[in-house]
Simulated scan of single mutants.
Amino acid sequence: MSALQGEVVERVCGHFRLGEVTAVTRNRVGLIHATFEVEAGGEAWIVQRIHPVFGEAEMENVAMATRFLREHGVPAPEVVPAPDGKPFYREPSGLWRVTKRLPGRSFPTVPSAGIAEAAGAMLGRFHRVMARFPQNLRPGKRRLHDTAAIVAEAREVFERYRETPKFPPVADLVATLPDRIERLLLPGGFSVQIVHGDPKISNFLFEEEEVTGLLDLDAISTHTLLVDLGDALRSWCGTHEDDPRNRFDPGLADAALRGWRATALPLPPEEQRAIGRATRLITLELAVRFLRDYFEERYFAWDPARYPDAAAHHLARARSMVHLADSIPDDL
Rank of each mutant, 00 (worst) to 15 (best):
R162A: 13
T147W: 09
Q48T: 08
L265D: 15
R11Q: 15
R90Q: 11
A57Y: 08
N27D: 15
V12N: 03
R234T: 09
E7K: 08
M130Q: 10
H313Q: 05
T164L: 11
V80T: 02
L144A: 12
F126D: 13
L137S: 04
R273Y: 02
D218I: 06
R128A: 15
V129P: 10
T222E: 15
A325L: 02
T99A: 15
G197N: 08
T66D: 05
S2K: 07
L215V: 00
P103R: 02
G140I: 03
A274C: 09
H313W: 08
K100H: 10
M59P: 10
D293T: 00
G85L: 02
V98L: 01
I282K: 03
D309Q: 03
S106E: 10
V98M: 01
L123E: 09
F190N: 12
G42Q: 07
P268A: 09
I181C: 05
T66H: 06
A34Y: 15
M130L: 11
D249G: 06
E56G: 08
D243Y: 13
G55N: 08
R162D: 10
S2E: 09
N136A: 14
A171F: 13
H323D: 12
I46W: 01
V174H: 00
R162F: 10
G197W: 11
A63Y: 14
L173H: 07
A65S: 11
H15E: 15
D218A: 08
N203C: 01
D249A: 10
L214F: 11
F54D: 10
G188E: 12
A152M: 12
L291P: 03
R90N: 10
G114A: 13
E296G: 08
L332D: 13
V195Y: 07
Q5V: 09
T109V: 14
V53S: 14
D331T: 09
